[in-house]
Write a protein that binds this DNA or RNA. Structure first.
Lengths: 204, 204
DNA sequence: ATATAACATGAATAATGTTCATATAATGAA
DNA sequence: TTCATTATATGAACATTATTCATGTTATAT
């Protein structure tokens, strides 16, 4: 999570010089560090500016509001999670494998950086629409992928199935974080408990 | 959600007179109304007090902080959800039926009062520990119930299974809210898509 | 070289969560 | 009843917040 490319996000002003690019990245990284230890509302704009060695006024050159730097972080996580998932399923030859690797990948990601939940789920408290947009668009692309593999599946409603699978993945991620599960424990839970249920239940 | 009994919750001072009991309930109901329209951080203590026709100082007689009235609402929802679930599964004669009715009950509850997510998931942003306590204790009692029905099940790790089922329920609830699903559409999704998967996957 | 756009600053403003000194109302023992 | 004690009520005062703005400095392109 340290790319230099600035994402296009409403309320975020893309800098036009190299200096500005460095500055906005400094602010984003400072915000990310602080939000990983405390919630959106416990972190003040002046905290972020102190952490980034920047004046408060400068913050508002790049972000129209405190909510907008949060929006930016949500967008960054979404992109990074999709990238991690795409990488993890690259070599898979069946939808069953894709599901198994996708679930494992997400849970490992979440354990390595539990901030995913703070940021993404926290968006519900920051701005409801941000949260809804995130999951609606995630579910839709998930459902399209399932539809493409329909001949391997025993399901008709791919959208509900997508929400079901997202729910399983997200809540097992929670369990893994709560219990501080190791990679081996994660693999065990997925291979021995979850995947057998899905294999019998939704695959031909 | 309008009982008079005050729950025992840290940071909440149980009133000792009838007058105090009325006052704290007025404050709680005012807070609940406001939090259903806006997030924890968009609602100020003085908003709550205005809505309850009460002075700010009075608020702090009953709640040590703004977080504590939120903690109280989370506790109230937890109790009420458990009550609704217990009622809905009262007549069930198998674990399969219990799961089906439980999922439907929760989703109907969530559609009727989407505030559940705002309050319970929002607690992640208000105070991480509140959120973790909620789900850890929910998962543990779910797992105990599954363990009692183990002879009907094809699973060994009941705790991971509990998290899986909680994930399915919660995310289908989200879908139902996002899409404004009717009771019939909810029943269809559960009966035709989700339950067949679970029936083949995790039941003997 | 210089005009223009981009970037940087921190004091000022209105609004926030919480405290406090002060007041009234309810309770229970004599 | 009397009166001492506890419970409840108040809103001005305080420190901190998100955001704005007038005033700079720096970078870029012609």
């Amino acid at each position: 999570m340290a790319e230099k490319q600035i994402l296009t996000v409403p309320g975020v002003h893309v800098p036009k010089t190299k200096v500005g690019l460095t500055k906005i990245n400094t602010l984003v990284e400072a915000a990310e560090r602080l939000f990983s230890r405390a919630s959106f509302f416990e972190v003040s704009v002046s905290d972020i500016c102190k952490e980034a060695h920047t004046a408060v006024g400068t913050f508002y050159i790049y972000f129209e509001s405190k909510t907008d730097i949060y929006r930016y972080l949500v967008a960054r996580y979404k992109k990074d999670i999709k990238r991690a998932l795409a990488e993890s399923i690259a070599g898979c030859t069946s939808r069953l494998e894709v599901e198994r690797e996708g679930i494992k990948c997400f849970i490992r990601y979440a354990v390595a950086d539990p901030n995913v939940y703070n940021i993404v789920w926290g968006s519900l408290a920051v701005e409801r629409q941000m949260f809804e947009d995130y999951y609606v668009s995630f579910a839709e692309s998930y459902a399209r992928a399932l539809a493409r593999a329909k001949d391997e599946l025993k399901v008709d409603d791919v959208l509900s199935t997508a929400y079901m699978l997202m729910g399983i993945t997200n809540f097992l991620g929670l369990q893994a974080i709560f219990e501080g599960m190791t990679d081996k424990q994660i693999d065990d839970a997925i291979d021995c408990t979850i995947m057998p249920i899905l294999e019998r239940g939704m695959f031909r």
